[in-house]
């Protein structure tokens, strides 16, 4: 890791002791017992959502979202003129940066983007760009920065939701508000909005059985899917089912966000 004099010198790798204990206990617990999940939710129940617009004064638009314990903050800058002439295009550009804060996960993340974050930045771009009217700001660029403050599962779908709220706050013209949701399949049950100890991971996956996770970013008004992310191994039937569940969940989220935005607009207009 390169040395950075402005940062506290912390160990390069660290493991939270509680994760070791929890892992042992959590692995024994089944994902579902008595129709209840580990946090007493039903299979298709979402966690509580809190969303707030306009949290960073310097940014053109910003939003903060909490889904259960997962916390994401997102800021949008621009449209600003593109300086590099070789990137010339008559359409506007979108530029996404997705980052886990160093303290967001049980295991400390690097302050530089790792491969996973670079990959997710690209996916964030893919999920958002179909919804943005890029022809409205030619030669200019909008920059979106999503920062996960705490990761308790479904952090990436929270980041998509947060980014679209921030785009609305920045008054960037959108065809629709992209909303994302996550579904996990553990071989028996489909569970919506998994938290960290319910998420799919490569270590615990048993290759012999169906196991995986699906993320869908959906444009509820246009009724289009803007991004689909699938990890693990799922049959087409289960994939179909889980996508349907995802879309149902996004529609619930969409009504929450609609309310949130309308309230904000109202409070400013009065």
């Amino acid at each position: 890791m390169p040395t950075d004099t402005k940062r506290l010198p912390v160990p390069e790798t660290s493991i939270c002791p509680s994760t070791l204990i929890e892992d042992i206990s959590a692995k024994k617990l089944p994902l579902i017992s008595n129709n209840k999940r580990r946090d007493d939710r039903l299979c298709t129940q979402l966690r509580h959502v809190y969303a707030k617009l306009k949290v960073i004064s310097q940014a053109q638009g910003s939003a903060y979202i909490e889904i259960g314990n997962t916390k994401v903050i997102c800021s949008v800058y621009g449209p600003r003129e593109v300086k590099k002439r070789d990137e010339f295009s008559m359409d506007g550009q979108l530029c996404c940066d997705f980052k886990f804060a160093t303290f967001s996960c049980p295991q400390r993340r690097s302050h530089l983007s790792d491969n996973e974050e670079k990959e997710l930045s690209q996916q964030l771009l893919n999920a958002l760009s179909p919804a943005v009217c890029l022809n409205k700001f030619p030669k200019a660029r909008v920059e979106i920065f999503a920062l996960v403050l705490e990761n308790d599962g479904s952090a990436f779908s929270a980041a998509i939701n947060c980014a679209s709220l921030a785009l609305v706050d920045a008054s960037i013209e959108l065809y629709d508000i992209p909303v994302a949701a996550c579904v996990r399949y553990d071989g028996v049950n489909l569970i919506v909005d998994p938290q960290l100890n319910e998420e799919y991971s490569h270590q615990e996956s048993n290759l012999s059985e169906e196991n995986g996770q699906v993320l869908v970013a959906y444009l509820p008004v246009l009724k289009q899917i803007s991004a689909l992310n699938h990890v693990g191994c799922l049959s087409s039937k289960v994939l179909n089912q889980s996508m349907k569940l995802c879309i149902e969940a996004t529609q619930k989220m969409h009504t929450i966000f609609q309310e949130c935005i309308k309230e904000k607009v109202k409070s400013i207009m009065d």
Binding site: V168, V221, Q258, I261
Partner: peptide, 12 residues
């Protein structure tokens, strides 16, 4: 604005 209620919309 009470005389003429505002028609508020969001994208979409």
């Amino acid at each position: 604005s009470a005389e003429r209620p505002l028609h508020l919309v969001i994208p979409g």
